[in-house]
Amino acid sequence: MLKDSAVYSKIILSVVPGIAVCTTALSALIFGAISFVSVTVSWLLIYLLKGFLNKKTAPFACAVISLGIIGILTMVASLFFKAELEGVSHYLPLLAVTTALLLPQEIMFASLKDAFANGLLQGATGSAFLFTCTVLKEVLGKGSIFGFDIYTKIFPAAEFFATAAGGLLIAAGLTVVYNLLVKCSEKRGAK
């Protein structure tokens, strides 16, 4: 699935709004964890409910299920990380809609193992990508990691990378690296 660039693109596009709002590695970790759990559980629930759904109703059902899970997780997370979720919480529900878009129609015919594996892998890929992007954003844009200063006493951080535009540029760079890795693995496979 990860070698399929169409699926990879969909996963990355689903976390792009998160790149705009996550400015610290900790907020990305919380955002990513909520995203990971909601995607995985949504896939499983949709699989279990597939007898009652059809191709048209499945995305809507997935959006509602995902929103419910995100809502519960956000409420729990805000008890412990209120400050980190301050600017992020409004973007979390948007994940539900993208989850619904990610849900391919094949899930209606997939096995439980496939549904679980797809959900797990999609959630993990999106969360890992968001976390990596935000860590780079924090390191390059603020010169710190998890709030700990790294190099700003020696030279100033490039503040551009802390903005949404900088985050997108980092995301583009990571996607280029991913494309190069896929290309290399294809060459090895051909040999």
Binding site: A165, L168, A172
Partner: peptide, 22 residues
């Protein structure tokens, strides 16, 4: 380059537009 085509170039364009509009 092949590795920049597709999603990366979209993200780069949107990033520059975001910078310009900002």
């Amino acid at each position: 380059p092949r590795s920049v085509k597709g999603l990366p170039i979209t993200l780069i364009i949107v990033s520059l537009l975001s910078l310009a509009f900002g």
